[in-house]
C-alpha cells in the first residue's frame, strides 16, 4: 500500500511531502483528517503547517481529529510514523513523543537552513546515516523550541535523533537557533519508529533548491515503510 500523508485544515506542507517522497520513488496519498481508516498504510507522515490554525496550542486540537486514533494505533504497533515541524508538535500533544514545543527563544519565526548532526541511527529517520553526519536542512517554525521537562519528571532520557550544531558539528547556545532543550532537533520514541523532526527534510531534496541533505533522511523513512506488511 502506500504512505499516508495526513492533512488537517491548516496543514500546508502536504504537497511538498508527497512530492519529495515521489522523487524517492515512493507513493504517498493525502488523507483528510476526518478519515478514520488508515488500514493498509505502510507509514504515516504528519506534515508541517498550522493545523487548526495553531489555536489554543500548536497541535492541541489536531491531536483530537478523527484520524488521530488511527495514527496512534499504527504508531503504537510500530508502523513508521514521522511528524515534521507541526507534525512533531502534534505527536508530542498526542503523547506519542515526550516533551512539547513552545515559542522560539527570540519570539520570532525562523526560516533559514540550519546544520544538524546525527546523534543516533536507531530511528526510521536516520537508519541510512552515520552518527556524526552533518546535514543542511531548512528550518521553518515559530514554535520550534523543544521543551523536555525530564529533569522534573525523572523520565528516561529521550532518544535524540538530530541536534542543531554549527558547520564543524559543535553544539551549544550560540548554535541553537530556537532555544531547544539540549539543541534537540529531532527525537524518537524508544523503538525509533515514531520520530518528530523540526527542520524540513522534504525541502532539501534537489540541488536546484540548495541542498539534497534531506534525501538520506527520507530514504531512511521510505526503506522502513518498505518492510512493513500492512
Amino acid at each position: 500500500m502506500t504512505i499516508a500523508v495526513v492533512v488537517f485544515p491548516g496543514t500546508n506542507c502536504e504537497h511538498d511531502a508527497r512530492y519529495a517522497l515521489a522523487l524517492l520513488g515512493s507513493h504517498a496519498e493525502l488523507v483528510w483528517h476526518r478519515d478514520d481508516d488508515l488500514s493498509g498504510a505502510t507509514g504515516v507522515v504528519l506534515p508541517g503547517g498550522f493545523a487548526h490554525g495553531d489555536y489554543l496550542r500548536t497541535g492541541a486540537i489536531a491531536r483530537f481529529s478523527p484520524v488521530m486514533a488511527e495514527v496512534e494505533r499504527l504508531a503504537r504497533q510500530g508502523t513508521p510514523t514521522l511528524g515534521i515541524c507541526n507534525g512533531f508538535q502534534i505527536l508530542c500533544e498526542a503523547g506519542l513523543l515526550p516533551g512539547a514545543l513552545v515559542a522560539n527563544r527570540d519570539l520570532r519565526f525562523i526560516c533559514r537552513t540550519v546544520t544538524v548532526r546525527v546523534e543516533s541511527t536507531d530511528s526510521i529517520l536516520t537508519s541510512h546515516t552515520s552518527v556524526g553526519d552533518l546535514l543542511q536542512i531548512p528550518l521553518n517554525s515559530y514554535e520550534g523550541n523543544y521543551v523536555l521537562p525530564a529533569a522534573i519528571d525523572g523520565a528516561p532520557s529521550p532518544n535524540v535523533v538530530l541536534r542543531y550544531c554549527d558547520s564543524s558539528g559543535a553544539s551549544g547556545k550560540q548554535m541553537n537557533p530556537n532555544g531547544s532543550t539540549d539543541s534537540i532537533a529531532a527525537v524518537a520514541d524508544a523503538n525509533g519508529t515514531i520520530v518528530g523532526v523540526m527542520p524540513h527534510p522534504e525541502r532539501a531534496v534537489e540541488d536546484i533548491l540548495g541542498s539534497t541533505d534531506g534525501r538520506v533522511l527520507l530514504e531512511s523513512f521510505v526503506s522502513a515503510t518498505a518492510s512493513v506488511v500492512a
Binding site: 513552545v102 515559542a103 523550541n145 521537562p149 529533569a151 532543550t181
Partner: peptide, 13 residues
C-alpha cells in the same frame, strides 16, 4: 507555564 520551564515570552517581558 510550569515553573522551571523555558518561557520566552516571560523572559522577554
Amino acid at each position: 507555564r510550569r515553573s522551571g520551564l523555558s518561557d520566552p515570552e516571560g523572559a522577554t517581558a
